[in-house]
């Protein structure tokens, strides 16, 4: 009985494993789980991305011409180019 249950479970697992998205998920899941050096690198990467996208981008780097139409941007830049004469 136990053996049969095990066989059914293994068959279900195999069927799942054959589905491409599940296999891709498994691939990444196992890959990340088995990382050693990679964990340190991911930590550095995530801290760096947080500093770049949250701290620097939001606090210090608003786009000067963001949210303006092409014509409005042209208007602003044209007056800047003329101002520098």
């Amino acid at each position: 009985m136990i053996e049969r249950r095990y066989t059914v479970h293994a068959a279900m697992k195999n069927r799942k494993e054959r589905i491409l998205p599940c296999r891709i998920f498994r691939f990444y899941y196992d890959g990340f789980r088995e990382m050693t050096l990679g964990k340190t690198l991911w930590a550095i990467l995530l801290i760096k991305l947080f500093v770049i996208f949250v701290i620097l981008r939001l606090l210090f780097f608003p786009d000067a011409l963001a949210g303006k139409s092409e014509e409005e941007r042209g208007e602003i830049v044209r007056s800047e180019l003329i101002k520098h004469r």
Binding site: F61, P62, A64
Partner: peptide, 15 residues
């Protein structure tokens, strides 16, 4: 970061 700088510090150039 260079791309951020284009938008902020070099907006005339970017346009």
């Amino acid at each position: 970061i260079l791309e951020f700088e284009f938008g902020t510090n070099w907006s005339n150039y970017s346009n």
